[in-house]
Write a protein that binds this DNA or RNA. Structure first.
Length: 209
DNA sequence: CATTTGATAACG
DNA sequence: GTTATCAAATGT
């Protein structure tokens, strides 16, 4: 395998999780299928979850359970969990060990293996194939068994692909976390402005300075 | 806007 | 061990 384009551990093991989330835009999420063929999508939407002090994070207040244990590991691992009784969410663990931050990949734009993606998603308009965290897991064949996998292995990884200019990046509030109180207002959702694969058009928070 | 079911937390 | 509450969403 040629792994040169894979992001290095240093990319994930940094303190500024929001920055990592922003930099993941334009990168390629690759999950080979059973036959070893590349199925991939460009990341167009992410959300940062900043650990202990973030009411919306599973690790808020230092909560540590069998489910979120992975978040306490070093950055560069896959954290997959099940929600709403039917959907998976794909996250990349960020930061050093005992620093339970993670970045939720909310949407990708199909790049390779589109036929496979269409097959998995059924008859679906193209812009609906991967425009949401649950959808992209189905499309890329991600399931519970990916939890705890390394992003430097052969099951799934993220590699360099496009550069997204700062002007193309939109910032806003995270989605589906109304219970998080003030933290629900934090500008920790990032997406590529105008990209049709972003899960939902939402209000942008004008970036300070 | 109703739906869905596994994971958690709070019990006993 | 049992029970109650809730969840990083989706499809209609």
């Amino acid at each position: 395998m040629h792994a040169e384009r894979k992001l290095s551990p240093e990319f994930y093991i940094r303190e500024d999780t929001a920055k990592i989330a922003r930099e993941l835009l334009g990168k390629l999420l690759v999950v080979p299928d059973e036959g070893g063929h590349r199925v991939s999508g460009m990341i167009v939407e992410t959300e940062a979850y900043l650990g202990i002090g973030d009411r919306a994070a599973h690790s808020y207040g230092g909560r540590r359970t069998g489910r979120n244990e992975i978040m306490y590991g070093a950055g560069g691992q896959v954290y997959v969990f099940f929600v709403y009784g039917m959907y998976y969410q794909f996250n990349a663990v960020a930061g050093p060990a005992e620093h339970p931050h993670a970045i939720l990949i909310r949407a990708v734009e199909p790049v390779e293996g589109i036929e496979m993606i269409r097959e998995r998603r059924g008859k679906m308009a193209d812009h609906n194939l991967t425009s949401g965290p649950g959808k992209l897991c189905i499309a890329l064949g991600i399931n519970r068994s990916f939890n705890g996998e390394s992003l430097f292995g052969e099951r799934s990884w993220i590699e360099n692909f496009r550069d997204i200019s700062k002007a193309q990046i939109a910032v806003g509030k995270r989605i589906g976390i109304d219970y998080a109180g003030e933290d629900a207002q934090k500008p920790w959702r990032f997406w590529v402005r105008g990209n049709p694969f972003v899960s939902k058009p939402r209000l942008e928070i004008s970036q300070q300075t």
